[in-house]
Every structure is written in C-alpha cells, then in structure tokens.
Design a protein around this nucleic acid. Structure first.
Lengths: 265, 265
DNA sequence: CATGGTTGTTCCAAATTGTGGAATAGCGTT
DNA sequence: AACGCTATTCCACAATTTGGAACAACCATG
C-alpha cells in the first residue's frame, strides 16, 4: 500500500520532530512532491491525526496523538485548541472568558481571557473554587453519575457556603445538576461571589468525555438575564466548535457522557 | 484519500479498544471486507503502527504508539517484546537471562528468565546494582557521552567496590567503556559477585536510543571464556532481533546512540 | 478421523483512486 | 508594484486499491 506508506512516513516525521512543520519542509525532507504531502496532510487533519495551525499554516500532531500521551501533554494540547476560540468569544462579549476542569470537588482554571473593563472578574490560571457553587463546576459535576457524585462528597459533610445564594445541601445540588443536564449549560447568580454572575458550557473530547467547561463571568449589573440569554448562543457555539476540533462525536446529541479523569498534577 | 481514511479508521478502532483484535472482528465492526482490513493491517505492521501477536494472530497497537505514551506503558510494551525472545535465548543457554535498564548510576532489572540449574544466578525484577561493576551496567553506561558520565558521577566520589575485580576509578571505567563501545557488548568476570560471570548486549528503540541491555549470567565454572565466546552470537542475535522489533534504525551500523532517559518510577 | 465452521491469508481483473507537475492564490518583503 | 516565498488547487494519466471469492490452517464437534 503505497499511499498509506507515504502517509505513515509523514506521521513518523511529525512524531519524531515533535514540532510543527510546513508543507515544503516535509516535502523536502521526505522527497515527496508538495501536492502529495498536502493531500496526505489534509486527510490526516480530517481524522485528527494531524492539525494545522491556522496562523502559521504549519502542521503538527493532532489530538488523536495527544490523547494517548501523559495528562500534562493532554492539557497542553487542550489549551492550544481552546485558546484561539476563547479569544474569539472574548472579543465578542468583552467579559472575562475562562476555562476550568474538575479536580476532585473543586474546579481549577486552566486558561482565561480577562475582560479589560474597569469592573471585571479577574481569575488566574491555577485558581480553584468549590465546584458546587460555580456555573463551571456545576457543568462539570453534571457529567458525573449519581453514584460518582455521592462517592465524591461522601466524606465531606455539608457543602461549603460561598455566598448566601450557594446551594448547600446535596439534594439541592442534585436537583440543580439535573437541570444542567437537561439544558446543557449552567448559570450561577452570585453563588460564588456576591455581585458576580456566570454562565458555563461543557467541552467534550473525542471519546465523548467531558474534559473542561468554558464560562463567561461578569458583574451582576452587566450580566443581566437578557445579556446572558444573548451570550448563551455564542458561548455554546464556542464550546461546540472546540469540542468539534477535539473530535467529539455527535455534536448535538444528548451528552450524558462520562467525565474524563482529571490529572492530579 | 479513501485508502488512508480506512487505515486511520482501523487505527482509531485499535486505539479506542486498546486491546488486540482479530481481522474479522475489525472487519465486522467497521464493515469492511476482510481482504481490505488484512492489507491495511499488514502495512500498519510494516511501519510499526500495529503489531500482530504471533500466537493469537490478533492485531494490536505497535511500538510507535507506545513510544509516545507514559514511561510506564513504554516499559510494559518493551517487556512484551522482550519476553518471548528472552525465553528463546534462555532455552538455548540454560543460564539466567535478564534485562535491565539504567536508573541514575544503578541498573534495575526489568525482566528475567531464571536458570533451573542447582547452582544458578537468581535475580528478581526490581533488583538494583551499581552500574559500573556489572556487564549490563557497562553496556548501558557506554551509551553516555563523556560529559554525561562525569555529570552522573560528579558528586559520588570513589566508585563502590563490589568485589576485588571491580573497577574503582573513573579512569579505569572510562577506558573499559571505550572497549565496550568498540565491541558492542560487555563482560564481567566476578566484578559484581565473586564466582559470577556475566555478558551483556544492548537494545535500541526506534529512535536509536539504547533503552535496556540483556545479559546472560552464570557461575564462573560454567561461564568459561569458551562458553562466553560460544554464547555471545546467540545473545547478540537476540538483542538484534528485539531492537529490530522495536523498529531500531540501521541494525548493524555503529551505535554510539543516545541513551534514552529512564523513568524514575 | 472426517467434517463443518471457524479463522487468517492470498489472489486478480476491474476501475476507482492517488499521482505529481504545473498553475493558482495568498502573503510578506524588498 | 514586483518579487519570492509560501499553501493550495487542478487534472489527465495510470498505477493503485478494491473486495469478492478461493485457499489454507486451525479447532471443535459428530
């Protein structure tokens, strides 16, 4: 199989270099015509074995490779995919856009674009919050089964109350998560911090596991119900695009997928 | 590219299943004719993206995939490849055959077939020895550059003397390693343990890095110079075969390759 | 021991598919 | 504006993949 052989050689090269390469670079190294290399790359990209940087036009390894690497590399790949689409979303809404994933019963922010408004939500990468009182957290928890959820909170007693509006009982939380599952997104009205409203939507990887969630957060005065309703399609469009880039299956089918085990480090 | 697409689908399936599958199994799942699946698998095997278990005839992921996984998985894959060929060697020489890799200035045994003779060398997986006074260790150290070697031993003072014949000075060691590089193998005469002789030969991975070494060890009385000379071709044949299965480049060209960084855990 | 039902593997004519040089388009620099 | 550099598209030729069917090898079962 000649065509397959050539494609595998291209993959080999990308694996061994482990950095992005241009079409001509590959073409020269492997002594293949540019047209051929390009066609191969297009197919590899289609099946997520390679990916093209839309800015530099260079090609690198795709998510299918990162999926089987260490959790650390996986996060790196995830961030690389999220970054440009999060920036796009930020430019549209001008509020702080952030991404987080679940670490035990907390969420940890892994990427963000901070609003430049005078009054804004300021979040640093690495920051953690209790999952149960953030929109992002509720989205991430919604991927857990009832059993997993009770397991997670079994030795933790009553839920910490961040603000007056935080949910504090397991029953309330479960009911809330039920709604999140139906809607496919979560909101929080000053549950994390007084004066801050937030909305979040999930990201799935190519196995259909929820790996992170993206949120828009801003001050109560700007994040009115109307504004949230206006931004929600944009947010969901963004998370859908990211999920798609990650190779997630059935884009609009009912989620209810498993939550990917998050890394400790 | 239809043929590539199909091949990638086969790979996808192997990745997601993460266990060996038969041709018909794949053929049914993907609804492709058996002939096509077989042809694709043959090509994937050729380029180390898949491998066939010669006993069960089933196909699984190849070393190219394991190469980019966590060090732990890499060791698992390495052992899977070494095991049958080490057994073969053991059956031919009836002496203890073992494999070890370098961990700092020690070697750690990662696989072994123990002789069933009354007087035999008994080694457990996980055991460690100072690298400088074992044949295996000398082989592994021979892949290091002069700079790396001094770096490794810089804060360790005089080399530990295992037996009377052990090398103890850095100068002696370097001279000894020079010889190992020339020969492509190492021997030790009661340098680790009084009464025990040993011979070792290196294994390279598909990047040309030395990842482990295999040794035959036995009591001085049986491991005479003549016996060693008789067994050496068998040992080298075995390590060559393993290296080849791992996809090592230029089988008989001058090694002088880098030593792969070994895992800590 | 033969038989039926598995499996993996091989074969080959038909035609669909990949080929790769050359043309095009797009981008940044001179 | 013209140049040199990319990535990308195009297309007629032909080499390649295709996949059904035949084969071989194995293992239960009758």
């Amino acid at each position: 199989m000649k065509s397959l052989a050539k494609a595998l050689l291209v993959m080999d090269l990308l694996v061994s270099k482990n950095e992005e390469m241009s079409v001509t670079e590959i073409s020269n190294t492997l002594e293949m015509p540019k047209g051929t290399v390009h066609r191969i790359l297009a197919s590899l990209v289609k099946y997520k074995y390679a990916r093209q940087d839309h800015e530099t036009k260079k090609y690198g390894l795709g998510i299918r490779f990162y999926m089987m690497q260490s959790p650390l590399d996986r996060f790196k790949a995830l961030r690389a995919v999220m970054n440009p689409l999060m920036r796009e979303l930020y430019l549209k809404c001008k509020e702080t856009v952030s991404a987080a994933s679940l670490m035990d019963d907390e969420i940890e922010y892994i990427e963000r674009f901070e609003s430049e408004m005078l009054l804004r939500v300021s979040i640093r990468v690495g920051t953690r919050f209790p999952a149960h009182c953030t929109a992002t957290g509720k989205v991430l928890l919604s991927a857990l089964s009832d059993a997993e959820l009770t397991q997670l909170y079994k030795s933790r007693g009553r839920l910490k109350k961040c603000t007056e509006t935080s949910v504090t009982s397991m029953r309330e939380l479960k009911k809330s998560l039920e709604k999140v599952r139906e809607q496919g997104y979560a909101r929080d009205r000053e549950e994390t911090l007084i004066g801050v409203n937030c909305m979040a939507s999930p990201i799935y990887n190519l196995k259909g596991e929820m790996v992170a969630a993206i949120s828009i957060s801003g001050p109560r005065e700007r994040m009115t119900p109307e504004k949230v309703a206006e931004l929600m399609p944009l947010l969901q469009e963004t998370t859908a695009k990211i999920s798609q880039e990650l190779g997630a299956p059935n884009i609009d089918a009912a989620p209810a997928g498993k939550l990917a085990h998050s890394a400790k480090s």
